[in-house]
Computed example of a mutant assay.
Amino acid sequence: MDSEGVLVVPDERVIRDELQRLVLADLLGPLGGPDEEIANREDPLTATSSAGWRPTT
Rank of each mutant, 00 (worst) to 15 (best):
L7P: 01
G52P: 05
T46K: 09
R41W: 11
L7Q: 11
R41Q: 04
T57V: 11
E4K: 07
L7Y: 10
G5P: 00
E36N: 04
E18Q: 12
T48V: 11
D35F: 05
V9M: 01
S50F: 11
E18G: 15
D11R: 03
L7V: 12
P34K: 14
A25Q: 01
G52R: 04
V23S: 06
V9S: 02
I38W: 07
S50R: 02
R21L: 05
R41S: 06
L22I: 05
S50C: 06
D35Y: 07
E12M: 05
I15D: 01
D17I: 06
M1N: 07
V14W: 01
D11V: 05
T56Y: 11
G33N: 00
S3I: 12
V8C: 04
G32E: 00
L19N: 09
P44H: 00
D2K: 02
A47R: 03
T46H: 12
P34M: 13
V8R: 02
T57M: 09
A39C: 06
S3N: 14
D2W: 00
T48R: 07
R54G: 15
G29H: 00
D11W: 03
T56Q: 14
S49M: 01
T56W: 09
L28Q: 07
V9P: 00
V14A: 13
M1V: 11
R13C: 15
T56S: 14
T48S: 12
G5R: 00
E37V: 03
V8L: 08
L45C: 12
S49F: 07
S49A: 11
G33R: 05
A39W: 01
L7C: 14
Q20P: 02
G32R: 03
L7S: 12
R54T: 15
D35Q: 08
L45T: 13
L27E: 15
L28F: 14
N40G: 05
A47K: 03
L31G: 10
T56V: 14
L31K: 08
E18N: 11
V23W: 06
I38G: 05
S50W: 07
R13T: 13
V23P: 02
G29F: 03
E18S: 14
V9R: 08
E18V: 15
S49D: 03
E18I: 12
A25V: 06
I15G: 00
V6T: 10
W53L: 13
D35S: 10
L45R: 05
I38N: 06
G5F: 03
V8D: 04
P10S: 01
V9F: 07
P30V: 07
R16I: 06
S50L: 11
L31T: 13
A51E: 09
V9K: 02
I38F: 11
A47N: 04
G29N: 09
P30S: 12
Q20A: 11
I38R: 02
T57D: 10
A25G: 08
D11Y: 05
L24A: 08
L31F: 15
L45M: 13
A51R: 06
L24V: 09
R54W: 13
L31M: 11
T57W: 07
E36D: 00
E12P: 02
L24Q: 02
S3R: 12
M1E: 06
S3P: 10
L19V: 13
T46M: 09
T46L: 12
E42P: 08
A25Y: 00
T46C: 09
P55Y: 00
R13H: 15
L31E: 02
G33E: 01
S49I: 03
D26S: 15
L27F: 15
